[in-house]
Amino acid sequence: MASSTRVTFPNKLLPYLLLAPQLAITAIFFYWPASQAIYQSVLREDPFGLSTQFVGLDNFRRVISDPNYVNSLQVTVIFSVATALIAMALALLLAVMADKVIRGKGIYRTLLIWPYAVAPAIAGMLWLFLFNPSMGTLAYLVRSAGYNWDPLLNGDQAMVLVVSAAAWKQISYNFLFFVAGLQSIPKSLIEAAAIDGAGETKRFWTIIFPLLAPTTFFLLVVNTVYAFFDTFGIIHAVTGGGPGKATETLVYKVYNDGFVNLILGDSAAQSVILMIIVIGLTAIQFRYVERKVHYG
């Protein structure tokens, strides 16, 4: 008859001391800047930085009606969807195959998880080395085949390049989760389906794939967050948002407007919009995880 409440220590002051380091860092480097971003998003500063005035939601209005912003929103959506789909589809294929083989599972896993350790920016550079029109061997092969390949000039090709690099880097992560997901499906279910006369392909689509749905959904959210935020390095290192603004994602634009072009109010408004997007994504993620984590 154990009591249901958590067993604890009676100290009163100690817990605050234990929490102090984390709370101090959080307050100074997270909450203060974040509140500043919100504050600045409703201010407008004159070009010389001499005076500021309250402008309400003007910055937001201007940002949203800016065709460049709409463009970067589109770019982000295309980039994220493509990255997530490619990275997940390839990872699922490999995980299903790895689940099937008997010998060499461990070796395959070892060799497939490398890219996780590679920084996104470097992943971008690796693909740039391969596809750089002046020296990349694969670029050379593509061009020898008669195709006019130049991702530094052609926006669509630049997009293909950054999506490839971003998806490549994410395959290992998705692979590990799909493998774990496949392992957690009870073998008896698959055996029952086999007895019910379902062939291998049918078993995959009617039993395995639906049962993987939680993993798939989770990865969809994680991959979207990844494509939104963690791929800044790829864009910055490989295309710099170009050519034109063909690969300028939302995060890249916040950085560029705030840090390079120094348009404070707009950048802050964009930050706040991004914040709302993150909150949405996190909420979705934790609605799903809720069943496993419980707060208390």
Partner: peptide, 19 residues
Amino acid sequence: IFITLMLPVEVRILPTYKV
């Protein structure tokens, strides 16, 4: 602590830099 999940560097670039 939990809410800091929703405040990645990317959404507070400039003010953090200023701090």
